[in-house]
Write a protein that binds this DNA or RNA. Structure first.
Lengths: 347, 347
DNA sequence: TTGTATGCGTTATCAA
DNA sequence: TTGATAACGCATACAA
């Protein structure tokens, strides 16, 4: 079967330790010896048994990424970036989907899988206020999103309130006054839905425009389908919106579809704005204006934090190292769904 | 640190073997003993060290899925299904992106990662005719797609030629006569591009319509952006299409966007048909008609094949077990981008 | 039904 | 600079 270090050592006429030294790039090996070993490795087509190394060192070279589901383009694109960022560090990524199911999210935190990974990048959806204690795990972890926070855990998130406030303000600047939102979670305060709604309300207050609950479109899951449903409900009510702010792009695209099916002109009759800057947002027609949350930055930062945690395990344990919270930069991407204007901006 | 079997054994007052028996569900353990052990496990919060078990058994419970990139919705959705199917078998999925880069695809086949996984589901893009020997690996593998085939390897694919032929025939039935295609790879015979083009040509021949090369839109990468570019080129030539068949949905959606930017009516002026049945295809406006390749079936079949291979490693090695090739079922989903018709079909 | 002992392929400690 | 050898935590052959 597969060759082991012993086989290589025997063929090269050295000890197993020397082979190990060569494999791991230990500097104090005579060039001649190294050459012999490399030749043997080549000849036997030897590859390190990562499982054995893992048992010995306790590290696997695998990090886990737990997200709701890859079918949501935002998470697919985030996963893409995380995989590439991990690769830069010589790490591979194991992906777990929890679908926003509480049980599955708990499994992610306590599952046996944790033994096989060097760390976890976790984007929860069901966990929230009250579950902070569950985050006190003894393996490297970086939290994503805004469902839950804990001082003891590294976290990468974004300025949700500010971004939503800026997005709403942008729509107000365009002269829109009846701005509907899609993606509201009734009663939620933490979490993207709660925070983005807060930003929306702040922007309205800034502009002295009264808050009208009839403009709120509920949507538990942030899929295209639910966005379309919420939009339909808004249109069939007497809310009379002249703009829609989707709490993510999928919702906004679903809403846009519903508007178009009903013959509503975008942006003339109703302007549409999304959140996430997923690729498809560029190719709807009109192209969807959206808030870019800095996916790339979120991914690279999260991986870097995980690597740092692993490297400084000791100081993290005794609290010498303070966990940090990073807020990614956001910006509003203006496209045709909010401003008809020129041919160029429409695309 | 983390408790080991020894700790559990000591606390429960039994031997490590007994703990092992309990953990692995060995039936012949006295109920009383089992209870003691379980109590100790609970008290110590013990979890099996998968790395150690792996070293011993040679199995990890992880399978690898190698795809071009998760940013392509088709692969994101496929990965979603594979993860869920794997979960049914108690397996986790490690995802590798090769981006269609030959070097990275070779790494996938020979990489050290293979030690950490029980098998590989591989969807290559760069490998092709002439690379068959590279597929003769000594670990469980299931091949996806149509780039490359090898009698010795399990394979899940689809009737590309027939599906493209049926899709083209469908457009012809609608009365379209100048059907452009987007996504052509010049000179390619194997691979989705080559096969789908062949299906297209067969359908034209069936209908007695001459093949016109000026209707072919090249696109190396099957992204929305390249679809839009190819469409633009077709429109600026004198090809004069009355329909467009995108070799995947991303291409078709990109093409659709380009058409709409230019004020072309869909489907009145030009009908658009895609391939893959990704979620977003349902929410463009008009919704994109497309070929459903049976992603779900592909995913579950591939995982099942991998599990079977692992279970029957012996018979696979000595050729008792013949590798199989499965062709997933396809069907054409008719939506508004090809038939304006009723409100219902438009959605 | 349960216990003892061995080895899986590495890395790391210590000598040489 | 290199070698011998002891873990790492578990599964299993064999014994009891």
């Amino acid at each position: 079967m597969a060759a082991t270090m012993h086989d290589v050592a025997r063929l090269a006429g050295v000890s197993i330790k020397t082979v190990s030294n060569v494999v791991n790039g230990y500097p104090h090996v005579r060039a001649e010896t190294r050459a012999k070993v490399l030749a043997a490795i080549d000849q036997l087509d030897y590859q390190v048994n990562v499982a054995a190394r893992n048992l010995r060192t306790g590290r696997t070279g695998i990090i886990a990424l737990a997200v709701p589901e890859l079918s949501l383009p935002y998470f697919a694109e985030l996963a893409d970036r995380v995989i590439e960022a991990a690769r830069e560090h010589g790490l591979t990524v194991l992906i777990e989907q929890h679908g926003g199911d509480r049980e599955r999210e708990l499994e992610v935190l306590s599952g046996a899988r944790r033994h096989l990974t060097d760390g976890l990048i976790f984007s929860p959806l069901a966990l929230g206020a009250g579950d902070e204690r569950l985050l006190e795990v003894d393996f490297p972890m970086v939290l994503l999103g805004e469902r839950i926070f804990h001082d003891g855990v590294d976290h990468v998130t974004m300025h949700n309130v500010e971004a939503a406030r800026a997005a709403t303000a942008y729509l107000l600047e365009l002269g829109r006054r009846r701005i509907a939102v899609v993606g509201v979670h009734a009663g939620e305060v933490v979490g993207s839905a709660g925070l983005r709604l807060e930003g929306y309300r702040l922007a309205l207050a800034d502009a002295g425009i009264p808050f009208d609950p009839s403009l709120l479109g509920e949507a538990g899951l942030w899929h295209r389908a639910t966005g379309a449903e919420a939009m339909a409900a808004l249109l069939e009510s007497d809310a009379g919106p002249d703009a829609v702010f989707g709490f993510n792009d999928a919702l906004a695209l679903g809403a846009m579809h519903e508007l178009q099916v009903r013959g509503v002109r975008i942006p003339e009759d109703i302007a549409v704005l999304g959140f996430d800057a997923i690729d498809d947002a560029m190719y709807s027609f009109p192209a969807l204006s959206t808030v870019d949350p800095g996916k790339e930055q979120i991914a690279t930062t999260a991986v870097q934090m995980l690597v740092d945690q692993a490297a400084n395990r000791q100081s993290y344990r005794n609290g010498v190292h303070r966990p940090t919270r990073v807020y990614a930069d956001f910006r509003i991407l203006v496209r045709g769904s909010t401003e008809p204007a020129t041919e160029a901006s429409r695309r």
